[in-house]
Computed example of a mutant assay.
Amino acid sequence: MEHATQVELGRTLFTYIDRGEQARSATPFANPVRDYICRDQAARERDVLFHDHPLLLGMTGDLPNPGDFFTNDFTGRPILVVRGKDGTVNAFLNVCRHRGAKLATADLAQGCAQTGGSFTCPYHGWAYGLDGRLLGVREADAFGEVDRSTHGLRRLAVVERNGFIWVRPGSEEPFDPDVLLGTLAPEMAAYGFERYSHYETRTLRRAMNWKLVIGTFLEGYHIKVLHRNTISSLLLGAQTSFDPYGRHVRMAVPRAGFETLRETPEHERDVLKHTAVVYELFPNTVLVWQGDHMETWRVFPGNTPDESVMHASLYIPEPAATDKAKRHWDRNMKLLLDTVEKEDFPLGEDMQRGFHSGAQDHLLFGRNEPALAHFHRSVHEALGLQEA
């Protein structure tokens, strides 16, 4: 985030603190329960949001070296992302062109894998380069003629920019991440995430709709109640800001020490150090700036509307080279997971079951929950659904 933007955000948060207020929308928003349980809508979400729409599948720190790769099956398509010998990131369908076998497996939860110079199919041994070219057919004379120029891996559109690795799961149709982010692009670039290192990723599966997972991060209304014994003392959850950027969202929550900034001239203030900044990068990524590091939640639909799967990742400003540093980041990862695993997600799974009870036909998002309403309006708009 640029310093001028930090100063502006700091002014907004101080205004809310002084007035005992937070960002508010004009009216409450009624969101239909069908958003979380309708199979037809879930199918359309897969087609529009997880097939056609570019997604943030990784960070530069996930692939530090040529030959590093990871795979992702959560979009409904098997995807292989690899850094080529020239340093360029490539993305392909993770499918051998001979008989359709999966070439490689490397979930980010185990860290990136290293392939060296090629991928070899585990079924019949066909080999592919890091650029997707078919390099060799085992026992080529016996197999017969193969046009290698037309039997390389199916390429997907991928762009690495400002530390983000974006992939369009459904095609090679080009896209521009700066156009996707719109006016938020300069703010994302200013963080310098391309210099950050991947510390740890966990793969989590939960019995709740993917949008319910996203919603966990988009309001501070629940912090003083649900998190009263954990993170409540660390955050001033009632004084949250809200800024929409097209379909994306920025929500900032001042930390307990935020008031100390009053003693510092504006041009010297490090607002980010004293603020938790939550971005929802449409459609399925939550990025949380935590003062000195960054966490991401990349959330995908499961096999039914009642299921989701996600990558929860921690990225740090420099590699953890000492035991002391590792203990520090382990504590951060534990806090990141404990809060949602022990408090948010069990309640979310109860909510998901309740959606099938017939107790309500809509959820009501209050004026003090504007980011939630904006997210669901954006989903409805992208899907071409009538406004709730």
Score class of each variant (00 low, 15 high):
135 L>A: 01
135 L>Y: 07
136 G>S: 13
136 G>R: 12
139 E>R: 12
140 A>L: 10
140 A>M: 13
140 A>W: 07
141 D>M: 15
144 G>W: 12
144 G>Y: 11
144 G>P: 02
149 S>D: 11
150 T>P: 05
151 H>I: 00
153 L>N: 04
155 R>M: 04
157 A>L: 05
160 E>H: 07
160 E>Y: 08
160 E>V: 03
160 E>N: 04
161 R>T: 04
164 F>V: 03
165 I>E: 12
166 W>T: 00
167 V>R: 10
167 V>P: 02
168 R>A: 12
168 R>W: 05
170 G>D: 06
170 G>R: 08
171 S>R: 06
171 S>D: 08
172 E>D: 15
172 E>Q: 07
172 E>V: 14
173 E>C: 10
173 E>Y: 01
174 P>Y: 09
176 D>E: 13
177 P>F: 13
178 D>T: 14
180 L>M: 06
181 L>I: 12
183 T>S: 08
186 P>R: 06
187 E>T: 11
187 E>Q: 14
189 A>N: 03
190 A>R: 14
190 A>H: 10
193 F>M: 09
195 R>V: 04
195 R>M: 07
195 R>I: 00
195 R>Q: 13
196 Y>N: 01
196 Y>W: 13
197 S>M: 15
198 H>F: 06
200 E>V: 12
200 E>H: 03
200 E>I: 09
200 E>R: 11
202 R>N: 09
203 T>P: 12
204 L>N: 01
205 R>E: 08
207 A>I: 00
207 A>R: 13
207 A>K: 11
207 A>Q: 13
208 M>P: 11
208 M>R: 14
209 N>M: 12
210 W>T: 03
210 W>R: 08
212 L>Y: 09
213 V>L: 07
214 I>D: 00
215 G>D: 14
220 G>K: 00
222 H>Q: 00
223 I>E: 02
226 L>K: 11
228 R>N: 08
230 T>K: 07
230 T>P: 01
230 T>G: 10
231 I>E: 02
232 S>C: 14
232 S>T: 10
233 S>W: 11
234 L>Y: 10
237 G>L: 05
237 G>D: 04
238 A>L: 03
239 Q>A: 14
241 S>P: 03
241 S>D: 02
242 F>S: 02
242 F>W: 13
244 P>R: 11
244 P>S: 05
247 R>W: 01
247 R>Y: 05
248 H>F: 15
249 V>N: 08
249 V>F: 11
251 M>R: 12
252 A>G: 05
252 A>M: 01
254 P>N: 13
255 R>P: 00
255 R>H: 03
257 G>H: 02
260 T>C: 11
261 L>F: 02
263 E>L: 00
264 T>S: 05
264 T>E: 02
264 T>H: 06
265 P>M: 09
265 P>E: 04
266 E>N: 07
267 H>Y: 14
267 H>A: 04
